[in-house]
Write a protein that binds this DNA or RNA. Sequence first.
DNA 1: AGATGTCAACGAAGCCCTTCGTAGATGCGG
DNA 2: CCGCATCTACGAAGGGCTTCGTTGACATCT
Lengths: 131, 131
Amino acid sequence: MSETKLPRPTDGELAILRVLWARGDSTVREVHDALTREEPEGTGYTTVLKLMQIMTEKGLVERDESQRAHVYRPRATEQRTQRQLVTDLVDRAFGGSPARLAMQALSSKKTRPEELAELRRLLDTLEGGEE
Amino acid sequence: MSETKLPRPTDGELAILRVLWARGDSTVREVHDALTREEPEGTGYTTVLKLMQIMTEKGLVERDESQRAHVYRPRATEQRTQRQLVTDLVDRAFGGSPARLAMQALSSKKTRPEELAELRRLLDTLEGGEE
DNA sequence: AGATGTCAACGAAGCCCTTCGTAGATGCGG
DNA sequence: CCGCATCTACGAAGGGCTTCGTTGACATCT
């Protein structure tokens, strides 16, 4: 039985999820500190707390309450969330064509050659496996 | 210079923009009919009207009022909007790496071989210009 | 002209997201 | 034990998005 589908995270929620994916399970304080580090004058502590409480209600994160400072854990992996966001965007703005999104992504910004090579390998796999 | 950055369109606004890009400049009635066709029981006429009025204020569309039924025109091309959406997503969820987004896009859905070939040509161009 | 239909323009309501102030519980150092 | 720091919880405010009812202007058909 897989998971009921999680809602699309908002921008603020995604910022928090990024911290959780990078640091691993964390308390509100730890998340808040991390966010403050990358953006001073960002958001206050209680704002982050409230956000994370709502994310718990939505099922985006889980909470271990056995300690006084609750520990939060993302319920979806980074990959899975990325996949969801991408398919969303493909459907909403690219007429359902992932390749068109991919091309737009590559044209717009400079990409490191190593990543291009990796992408090429993926392409080989995809083209090889058809028929 | 006149290109002030346009705000990121919401889901509803994007749906309207898609119609305008596909049909060309249109009246509210034409947009509403198109939306209703692809999603019956979607939104009412006045809802679409209001949305498009707000989009005008935001600068997402322009309006020709010389006819009784105003004619709306997107202020950014589909390409440019796609580019903006992609870079946004790359920054918010892919640590700034367009290639990782591209790979996620291709892994998640089946893509037509013809599009893969096109993508490969783009890759050739990008890698070619590096030496 | 009068009836009917179409249009833009508000404005209000409902919901969600974000922000923060405040209160109450809990742990900790003296 | 008392005071201080830290934490969760709660609620309210503000703004943005979406929805729709209503109104008044304008056109069309008879």
